[in-house]
Design a protein around this nucleic acid. Structure first.
Lengths: 130, 130
DNA sequence: CCGAATCCGCTGCGATACTG
DNA sequence: CAGTATCGCAGCGGATTCGG
């Protein structure tokens, strides 16, 4: 009798769900890395880029801009020649450090299981069926 | 094991950082919604789709396949005519419920600040430079 | 009912070159 | 040093069609 679950019926409509909101903020491939790079304190643009080796300057700038807009990152320009631009986490951005570490814990504990599941799945499904 | 990274100089190389791993799993736009849809228990394909209104069957199937491969979702086929396919979270998948709720808490607490920051940023930068 | 396969537009992202 | 503008590719993701 109780096998059907009439609660929470129809719509997890995309915008309604809180899950999505954070993901929109931190899941954009590089944002998490930026938080990680800045968690020790302020860095110059080039320093950030050196830490996140593999990022293009386009993506770095774009990511930093978006995070600045979201109030997670502070941007300070010193109008010298050549210019100096420092980036740091805002207090709001720092609240994400804990959140990210929580994710990291999940990864440390469970990701090996995911990898094993993948291997097993690929062995059953990716190669030959029987 | 033995992470112990006191320094963090050069490379947050993309693959090295643990942050990325979870995000690869849950950030693919629909995975989070699937977890949310299934957190009460087993559902049939059509039921899942009804809950996540707005998802195409292509994306739903694709997402479910990937999560099945990752060991997060279990797929049970009952070979009747017409066929019945049930989906449910595996124990591993269920460990993500707590993680997602943690994200949800962050959202509930801080997302309003993000929205305000955005408005302010757009007012300063989107309109006219001040 | 569940799902695979195809077609196709949109955009994310990297590489490059240029400005101040 | 920090950042913008342009091009080109590849993949996401939606609509549709066919199959078991």
């Amino acid at each position: 009798m109780g096998d059907a679950i009439p609660i929470k019926q129809a719509d997890i409509s995309i915008s309604a769900c809180s899950y999505r909101r954070v993901l929109e903020i931190i899941s954009s491939k590089w944002s998490a890395l930026v938080i990680y790079a800045l968690e020790d304190g302020m860095l110059r643009y080039g320093e950030v880029r050196k830490r996140i080796e593999g990022i293009s300057q386009k993506m770095l700038t774009q990511t930093l801009r978006q995070m600045e807009r979201d109030g997670l990152v502070r941007r300070e320009v010193t109008p010298t020649v050549p210019p100096v631009v420092d980036y740091s986490l805002t207090p709001l951005g720092e609240t994400l450090i804990g959140t990210m570490k929580h994710l990291k814990l999940w990864t440390a504990e469970y990701f090996p299981l995911v990898e094993r599941a993948r291997e097993e799945y690929d062995r059953s499904n990716g190669r030959d069926e029987g």
